[in-house]
Amino acid sequence: MASLPAPRGPLSEVLVQSLGGNFVEQLPAWPDSEPVDGSSDAPGPADETLALWVLHELSYRGFTDVDERWEWHPDLLVLRWRLEGGLEQRLRKRFPTIERTDDFVADLAGLIAADDGPSLARHLQRHGSREQALELLRQRSIYHLKEADPTAWVVPRLPGGRAKTALVEVQFDEYGAGDPQRLHHELFARGMVACGLSAEPGQYADEAITEVLEQNNAGSMFGMHRRLRGAALGHFAAFEATSSVPSRQLAQGLARLELPDEIQAYYEEHVEADAVHEQVALRDICGGLVAREPDLAEDVLLGAWTCLDLEARTASAMLERWEVA
């Protein structure tokens, strides 16, 4: 279990301090949010983004020496409500109008196929350094050590039918198809350890760039809110559909940099797995959901678009940091 991260502003400071102290029934009022850069290019505010990540994390693995009762503390839920409201508003503001036809699956596939965002996998395949690869693994660990978990929240929110059975079919594969040795987030953990890195979830939160935390927050928020189940599944489909080829490129890059077999194996596994998951996610999961609940179509597209957009933001930020943008 990881320690609480270092605060990034007044709000996360109060939150981290509270969680690090004794459990109390009532907390003082939360500090106001700082003024936000309203432009759609700006990432979420660093302080709020970290605070929301910490709040969500209480529902996954928690933190060392933090009382587990905090997860459902009403004062924390008040803060979560406020921060998720801000995040959702920001994501919807960035979301452009997507042209629709009468073939929803084709529209969704087309939106994903049109993605031409910068690619960290392409950079690392041929050019990136060992240090850059290890830095990317640390950034990715924020998600990969709880891979598939944000989508698992959606299962009980689906009424039934093809979308539900197909989602569980894919999740079963994500969770190792009954074999603990194949649990995807544990494959990643083994890869991290083989690289000499920590496999504790959230261990590298202090290094995580705001864009990475925002990616994680969006996935968690979509998954945890029944209302946003369409966005959660659209996000999942876009994630899976943009994973197979980059995973192959990354596996090649990691082999070129002579990083351990275990971490290569993690990406190798995703070449084949995600080639399957992509098809099932688009056709059966998202197609099945929208066939049953047509009103969710727009949110499915919102989720897919947000997934691609947030990855593009992370990739741009990392490439800029590496001075290759």
Binding site: E272, A275, E278
Partner: peptide, 24 residues
């Protein structure tokens, strides 16, 4: 080895007989 498997149909996969997304 999976609940669902994808078999390559484009003939360009590097992991025959399984799909590796190369068709895209």
């Amino acid at each position: 080895t999976r609940p669902v498997s994808a078999v390559c149909r484009c003939g360009r996969t590097s992991r025959a007989p399984w799909c590796d997304g190369t068709h895209k």
